[in-house]
Design a protein around this nucleic acid. Structure first.
Lengths: 192, 192
DNA sequence: CTTAATATTAGTATCAGGTACTAAATACTA
DNA sequence: TAGTATTTAGTACCTGATACTAATATTAAG
């Protein structure tokens, strides 16, 4: 039959997939050493399995993370700002994805929700630089990967360079988070 | 003199640096088009400027972010666990870096601190999967890039599958954060 | 204007890490 | 033992380079 004794080809290819999965920066030459076969065999295997060549793999890793880092770098705002009235209120949305969540439970890690709230709070403040001084907050129910979060921020009070901002996040009208952020704008001696 | 009229070589090389900085995935061939010179000139320029070849650049981007993503992927625990007594208490440390902070102020973004606290709280619980149900917390003073954070977690109470964990984070004995985490272990019907 | 220095272009050989293809040797299996 | 599957071998070719040599432009100075 086909894989009655699960020929070593099958075994090798399975291992090959794993190997390249966890260590994508490996040449065919190195692979043919570790598997004790000729380089042609490795190449046939890659061909059959549809695994691209080393350089292509490197490129993919680079490209993927180049994007990721870019969006992470400008993660001055987490989520998408859809409405804002400076010093008054603002709304942002965030489509949660699998990689924000625990693999097993698909529950979104809390700090993503926190980051969304924090950054929206900062965005509504009409000051170039603000910092979260004190926050007092509640998590309600867990958020699952794929949930679309809607955050609403309201500036409750402004006292000197202190801003009191309330943020509520909900999924389908159901509140999953609320918090009060106290932000401090800092333009004390830092001229510019 | 040397750069009296700032020869076009200088200009080209300056632009070349910028170009490759913002768009590292570009071949010499494309470059010689955009600059209207021969490919050899581009290569001489790269040689003089110490810019590595395309593949090397791709590799660097890939490698850098591969590390980053890996540590981000297994960010099930943020910081380094240095002591733990399951269901009792635990200590972790985290060396903050520039890329956790706002560029201008060097103030560490709140969600990193939150993530550290959250993950330590989870780590001290002797259950495979826990989730933050409700948290009530205070930020004290800002944390600056380079500060070494020490987080201490204590399990205050266990009631059924609910765990009440207090986490305090400090820099040089000075408390910068405290929070109470309510974690829920979920082994309802998910066997294994 | 001529000459020397500088900048640019051309061309060749070589490399890594492959693809694509053909052909031969080995192993397995019915 | 024939027939098929698997593995090796070998060649030509590809891209995006390096390393090197040599020729040609361009520019500046005497």
């Amino acid at each position: 039959m086909l894989s009655d004794k699960k020929g070593r080809k099958q075994i090798r290819q399975t291992k090959l997939l794993e190997k390249i999965e966890i260590e994508p920066f490996v040449t065919d030459e190195e692979l043919c050493d570790t598997f004790g076969v000729s380089i042609q065999t490795i190449r046939l295997d890659r061909l059959e399995l549809g695994i691209p060549e080393l350089r292509e793999r490197i490129k993919q890793v680079a490209a993927k993370n180049y994007r990721k880092v870019k969006t992470l770098g400008k993660a001055e705002i987490v989520g998408e700002l859809i409405d804002i009235n400076l010093n008054e209120d603002g709304i942002s949305i965030l489509e949660t994805t699998e990689d924000m969540a625990f693999r097993k439970t698909k529950i979104v890690r809390g700090h993503h929700i926190f980051a969304m709230a924090e950054s929206l709070a900062m965005a509504v403040i009409d000051a170039d630089v603000a910092l979260s001084g004190v926050a007092n907050m509640k998590y309600r129910v867990p958020v699952f990967a794929g949930d679309k979060l809607v955050a609403k921020a309201e500036v409750a009070r402004i006292r000197g360079n202190k801003y009191f901002v309330h943020v509520k996040i909900s999924v389908n009208q159901e509140q999953v988070f609320r918090g009060k952020f106290i932000l401090v704008s800092i333009w004390e001696e830092e001229e510019e």
